[in-house]
Design a protein around this nucleic acid. Structure first.
Length: 465
RNA sequence: GGAGAGAUGGCCGAGUUGGUCGAAGGCGCUCGCCUGCUAAGCGAGUAUAUUCCGAAAGGGGUAUCCCGGGUUCGAAUCCCGGUCUCUCCGCCA
């Protein structure tokens, strides 16, 4: 982490070129991606121009289709037009001043006014060209993903995610454990068939102790985060506008994953990350206020486009699910410590619920669009005999902050800096219900309520058929 | 849904007969001084982005007074559209 801060702080282009040649091959990919980050994401265009081929190579390593040629064409044009405009505007400003003083002294500056008429028309033309040009440029910029932190392992998909640790005892059953959807239906607490009639597939319908379990978990999680871990609770809008979605990176690239509201240009939130991170969009925060830490419950709505046939049964992959989220606004130099704390805060919930889980570090190929580094927490699901993601904790560094314009001011220093944003599930509630059902099931079909949760369940110790 | 008011710097708040307004004043903040005792006094400084010159200190350009258009040689100021906020009426969980 030290190195990357150093790298980013200030290094000459020659330094980069030299270093890139001499680094070990495993890190080379990440290193090159880092070049893009400081280059494109930070709008350090000069660097790209001087190291075009290397940047191009780095892009292709992330299997990016984005064309740097197009980017460069637009960028060259932009700089050219901008220079012309600024020169003309300078002239106009100067002459306007002259006109003002001349008029004051009673003279009519007819020729000057005539000249300025032409200048203004020219400026208008150029401005139109510029805005078209910038639109194209901006679109490309918004489609370029964040660059992984150097500590992120290289890999191509989830099979390459190294396991960081395993926690808890995987339960042994003297019978063959049932899937949570079977348990849920036989206990009368889950009804996917009726939910499908109400809406369609992949919507949840809870009854009785099941509905209460879901509600209990939400309260339990929020209480732990606020009372023990020091987060501030927020209850944000569940519908957000296009701008907010762009700030956190869901748009423009992933619109098909979202539910949009007809006629509104509004979207149902796919995660509380979107409304909560956007709380501070466009703000300059005080250094002493950092880190700002929020926890929020929201339902989450995802179209799950492209996941047909995957996890078709049960609570694992729903169009609507509940989640308690943790969101940080951190100073850059402490954001990776923050990520560890965030992860621990999420893990705490699983420990209290006595659910076995493991933590994996996402490799470069599995990393989400906006994230620089992500840990997934995966809970053990006995019926399928696999670990399933129940939380995802990420550091976005300044990627979202740049898009959302969230900055902070250091005491006694001039200027502002972008904050780092982080977030993680703490936890996905539906999947937690599924995990409790499967891990705590008994031979007679009943399910034991984790002790920590019983106060939230009116003292109920088990859900029985 | 109907009627009206408003949107200015980190915050509050002037400025609307168009022209040295990037914007008075205050608060806050930074530095220095004084006093001496816990709360004040004095002085100086203090927007952001981007670009250029410079080793740096610093200096120059451009943009930004909600957003987008328009009028004009010139717009925080005038006109049109939009967004948001507030007040009153109606309706509603």
């Amino acid at each position: 982490m030290k190195t990357h801060l150093l790298i980013r702080a200030k290094v000459s282009c020659e330094h980069f070129t030299r270093a890139a040649g001499g680094i070990p091959s495993v890190n080379r990919e990440i290193f090159l991606l880092y070049l893009i980050k400081i280059g494109i994401a930070m709008l350090e265009i000069k660097f790209i121009r001087q190291n075009l081929s290397m940047v191009q190579e780095a892009l292709s390593l992330r299997r990016q289709q984005a064309s740097l040629d197009a980017f460069m064409t637009h960028e060259e044009e932009r700089r050219l037009t901008l220079t012309q405009i600024e020169t003309l505007r300078h002239r106009r400003n100067k002459v306007s001043e002259t006109i003002a003083t001349m008029k004051k002294s009673g003279r009519e500056p007819l020729e000057l006014v005539e000249e300025m008429r032409g200048v203004s028309a020219k400026i208008k033309d150029l401005e139109k060209a510029l805005s078209e040009n910038e639109e194209a440029l901006f679109e490309i910029l918004l489609s370029i993903p964040n660059i992984p932190h150097p500590s992120v392992p290289a890999g191509k998909d989830s099979n390459d995610n190294p396991v960081r640790k395993e926690v808890g005892e995987v339960p042994r059953f003297s019978f063959s454990p049932k899937a949570h959807w079977d348990l849920g239906e036989s206990l009368g607490i889950l009804d996917f068939e009726r939910a499908a009639r109400i809406t369609g597939s992949r919507f949840p319908l809870y009854f009785g102790a099941g509905a209460r379990l879901e509600r209990a978990l939400i309260n339990f999680m929020l209480d732990i985060h606020t009372q023990e871990s020091g987060y501030q609770e927020v209850l944000p809008p569940f519908i957000v506008n296009r701008r907010s979605m762009t700030h956190t990176g869901q748009l423009p690239k992933f619109e098909e994953d979202l539910f949009a509201l007809k006629g509104w240009d509004y979207f149902l939130v796919p995660t509380a990350e979107v409304p909560v991170t956007n709380i501070h969009q466009g703000e300059v925060l005080e250094e002493e206020a950092l880190p700002i830490r929020y926890t929020a419950y929201t339902p989450c709505f995802r179209s799950e486009a492209g996941s047909y046939g995957k996890d078709t049964r049960g609570l694992i992959r729903q169009h609507q699910f509940n989640k308690v989220e943790l969101v940080w606004f951190s100073a850059p130099e402490t954001s990776y410590e923050a990520l560890e704390t965030l992860l621990a805060d999420a893990e705490k919930i699983l420990k209290r619920l006595e659910l076995p889980y493991r933590v994996v570090t996402l490799c470069t190929g599995d990393l989400g669009f906006s994230a620089a580094k992500t840990y997934d927490i995966e809970v053990w699901m006995p019926a399928q005999g696999v670990y399933r993601e129940i939380s995802s904790c990420s550091n976005f560094e300044d990627f979202q902050a740049r898009r959302a314009d969230i900055r902070f001011k250091r005491k006694g220093k001039k200027g502002t800096e972008l904050v780092h944003t982080l977030n993680g599930s703490g936890l996905a509630v539906g999947r937690t219900v599924a995990a409790i059902l499967e891990n705590n099931q008994q031979a007679d079909g009943s399910v034991i309520i984790p002790e920590a949760l019983r106060p939230y369940m009116g003292g109920l110790e088990a859900i029985r058929p």
